[in-house]
Amino acid sequence: MNLVHPEQGTELPALAVRVTREQLVRYAGASLDFNPIHWNERFAKEVGLPDVIAHGMLTMALGGRLLSDWLGDPGRIAEYGVRFTRPVVVPDDDEGTLVEFTGKVAEVRDDGTARVDITARSGGKTVLGKAQAVVRLS
């Protein structure tokens, strides 16, 4: 496994993902979250949303990829938490919606762990708040 030896302020390689309707359907099946706001435009609009929105848990999982790709071993992710601050609206086209993730090491601790702060933005706005992870460095 590729071990990382980061310092405070180290930036993780950024990740940009286009979230499409196809991915929402796939994630619904994989996660067993079949809430119709994630696949049924008619229903989404009935409850006051502009269109179908991505599962917040999918956006969180994509942020997890940022950590997984960086660490090389996703088993080193000890804690991971996010706030869902704004929905990611996903139009019915092939382009989908671009979501961009960045991460930075906020603190390296004596116990061999580090805290990583993650940002997630779509359409120029943050879609996750207080997205933080604690990872084991060894």
Binding site: V17, G29, L62, R65, S68, D69, G72, D73, P74, G75
Partner: peptide, 23 residues
Amino acid sequence: VEFADAIGDGSALYRDPEAATAA
């Protein structure tokens, strides 16, 4: 594997038992 594919995470540790035991 189904879940990892759905989130587009290609880590071998989700897919390859030998890689996982090596880790």
